[in-house]
């Protein structure tokens, strides 16, 4: 499914619950022209900027990282993380490419509890 198809599907789903999710109203809230949002949904233009994708994610209660990935983008904060230690993160990501989800969730950094 393309980025545009997904946005359209999610927005339409929400519009069935509330008219506040018409193309016009959503476009207004994320500060783009309704015609532009309509073109995005019909895959007539490439996916929008990261800023607009983040606004769409917030508006449609979607995960911004997932939407960015569907748009073929990597968020600026993730790019910055990789740029700071490119070798280590490249190595890490390649090693984890095939790791199952439970293994990935065990890699999450924990907040350390100390002596108090």
């Amino acid at each position: 499914m393309t980025f545009g198809d997904h946005i359209r599907e999610v927005r339409e789903q929400r519009r069935r619950e509330s008219t506040a999710f018409s193309v016009r109203q959503v476009a207004q809230r994320i500060e783009v022209e309704p015609a532009y949002l309509s073109k995005i949904e019909r895959n007539l233009v490439p996916p929008p900027s990261e800023r607009t994708i983040r606004r769409l994610a917030e508006e449609l209660h979607e995960d911004p990282d997932v939407l960015l990935a569907m748009a073929g983008k990597v968020s600026l904060d993730l790019q910055e993380i990789i740029r700071r230690r490119p070798r280590r993160f490249a190595e890490l990501l390649r090693q984890l490419r095939e790791a199952p989800d439970p293994a990935l969730s065990r890699l999450v950094r924990e907040v350390r509890d100390g002596d108090w």
């Binding site: 907040v111 350390r112 509890d113 100390g114 002596d115 108090w116």
Partner: peptide
């Protein structure tokens, strides 16, 4: 930021 924070904070851990 352990090198810029009081030693006690490192001992406590956390955020």
């Amino acid at each position: 930021f352990a090198d810029r924070l009081p030693a006690d904070w490192s001992r406590h851990g956390g955020v």
